[in-house]
């Protein structure tokens, strides 16, 4: 009787696990199936490098969106990565473990705030500040970068802390015994030993930043425009899909799926790099 129960549970769990994987496969197949034919029909170069996005005239160049996605993500890295790594180093090296155990989950709560709330704060607080101090519309590349930089903090911080704590205690003791200060230990030993983990945390943050949609739609202004300054309004790949999806039919709809294909490829590349970096770290250990 007991054995039968065991087998049933295994079967049920197996089915559930398989359906989760097949959902991923189905989504990938669906996007590729809808988007790839369009890319080849329209011309890869024309689609990727033309900056003319005028759906009503059947012109679908997504270069401004690619540029915007890359700039916004780069901006988010400039804001989020140093901040996140600094917080991780401080919490793991300068603060007693007991305090860290309270602060780390608190920071991870940042990830539980819905992106629409980040967007709302961006529109209500950040955009007016940027508009009043630098001019321009306020809803801009800079606003998007700052909001995304904050949104990726929990990812960067918690994975960085994990990899810093994975550095063996003997490394620290050895360094201190040689007369190094805490800071010298951090930048000469700890950072070097946990480098791949920190890089992985930044790349995972990057993946989150490039895929974020709602907050970016709200704060970045959404002009189809190759930015020439951080105060320009921009539209990212994700925003392009979400904004026009509900109206699009025919070729326009296929073009949005094709935008999804490009986004999908970019995110797969980023995640692969991150998982290679993480694997390196475990092997080292």
């Amino acid at each position: 009787m007991k054995l039968v129960g065991e087998k049933t549970v295994k079967g049920i769990l197996g089915t559930i696990a398989f359906s989760a994987i097949s959902a991923l496969l189905l989504i990938a197949l669906f996007i590729l199936n809808e988007g790839l034919p369009f890319i080849f029909k329209y011309g890869v170069r024309e689609f990727l490098f033309s900056s003319d996005w005028q759906p009503h005239l059947n012109k679908f160049g997504i270069f401004p969106m690619i540029a915007a996605s890359l700039w916004v993500t780069l901006g988010a890295m400039i804001v989020g990565a140093p901040l996140g790594v600094a917080v991780a180093l401080f919490l793991s090296e300068y603060v007693p473990q007991a305090v860290m155990r309270i602060i780390k989950p608190t920071i991870e709560l940042l990830a539980a705030i819905p992106s629409v709330v980040y967007g709302f704060i961006g529109v209500m607080v950040l955009a007016p500040i940027i508009r009043n101090s630098f001019g321009g519309p306020g809803l801009s590349l800079l606003a998007g970068s700052i909001i995304l930089g904050i949104m990726i903090l929990p990812t960067v911080i918690s994975i960085s802390i994990d990899s810093i704590l994975a550095v063996p205690q003997s490394f620290r003791e050895g360094s201190l015994a040689l007369g190094a200060t805490t800071w010298q230990t951090i930048h000469m030993v700890i950072i070097k030993a946990s480098k791949s983990g920190i890089i992985a945390s930044i790349i995972l943050g990057l993946g989150r930043a490039i895929g974020e949609t709602m907050a970016v739609i709200m704060v970045a202004g959404n002009s189809v425009n190759i930015p020439t300054s951080p105060f320009n309004s921009v539209r990212t790949l994700t925003a392009n899909i979400a904004l026009e999806m509900s109206y699009a039919t025919g070729l326009h709809r296929q073009a949005l799926f094709a935008t999804g294909v490009i986004l999908f490829i970019v995110i797969i590349i980023l995640n692969s790099i991150a998982s290679v970096a993480i694997k390196k770290r475990t092997i080292k250990k």
Binding site: Q54, P55, H56, P137, L139, G221, N222, S223, V224, N225, N232, S233, R235, L243, E244, S246, Y247, A248, H252
Partner: peptide, 26 residues
């Protein structure tokens, strides 16, 4: 955004609109 009924009506009535590149889109 492109495809909005309000936008296409607006552009059809005003006529000859090629929206400037850095216009915000909501």
């Amino acid at each position: 955004e492109a495809g909005s009924g309000t936008r296409s009506s607006f552009e059809q009535i005003i006529t000859n609109i090629t929206l400037k590149k850095d216009a915000l889109i909501q």
